[in-house]
């Protein structure tokens, strides 16, 4: 099949945490690298605080399917309380990744996803973001972490796009603080 090499990511978050921005940022960076993308939200009701889902496909070839992602390669959880109500690691295999915004130890996170046998990469996205940007939105940190774990796009590609896209909106200072948060996510253990 043509699209076996399509890389598929699901973001679980709550409205307002910036999952849409994160996935679109990665989509833009991938397109800049000559790749094909499809980034789209789970088209449910959108309100601040409600659980949300974003889908992102990245591929070297044209992506044709329009179905929501059912078998992701990576899952990014921006708010770990979403795991209480959603089967976030469904179809996530042993060799695939769960990236999560959490300051809890991995053993504790694994209790929430007992069937998942793959690697868990936790980073305190909210804490780091608060410290570096003054804003608790964990998306910048988690984008950095995702790039570290998967290498699906280059770190420079993401930060270049972020700078281009957000400098007019956020101003230079806050943009650079967020880029520092991306770097912090990327460099986290």
């Amino acid at each position: 099949m043509k699209n076996k090499n399509s890389f598929e990511i699901i973001f679980f978050a709550r409205g307002g945490q910036g999952a849409k921005t994160a996935s679109e940022l990665l989509a833009h960076a991938a397109v800049r690298e000559g790749k094909f993308v499809k980034a789209f939200p789970h088209f449910g009701p959108e309100r601040s605080g409600a659980p949300t889902k974003m889908f992102l496909r990245i591929s070297d070839d044209e992506i044709r399917t329009q179905e929501p992602i059912v078998d992701p390669d990576v899952v990014v959880v921006m708010d770990e309380t979403v795991m209480d109500n959603e089967d976030t690691t469904k179809n996530l295999d042993r060799n695939e990744f769960l990236i999560i915004n959490s300051k809890h130890p991995k053993e504790e996170i694994r209790k929430k996803a007992p069937d998942f046998k793959g690697a868990i990469h936790a980073v305190d996205g909210t804490g780091i973001a608060l410290e570096l940007t003054g804003n608790p939105n964990p998306n910048s940190v988690l984008v950095g972490k995702l790039v570290q774990v998967t290498g699906v796009v280059s770190l420079d590609g993401v930060t270049d796009i972020f700078r281009e896209y957000f400098t007019p909106k956020l101003g230079k200072e806050l943009t650079e603080k967020n880029i520092a948060a991306i770097h912090a996510g990327h460099d986290s253990l």
């Binding site: 833009h28 993308v37 499809k38 789209f40």
Partner: peptide
């Protein structure tokens, strides 16, 4: 609607 209008693509 949405499937095309709100999906970011190349």
């Amino acid at each position: 609607g949405f499937h095309t209008s709100h999906t970011t693509e190349r």
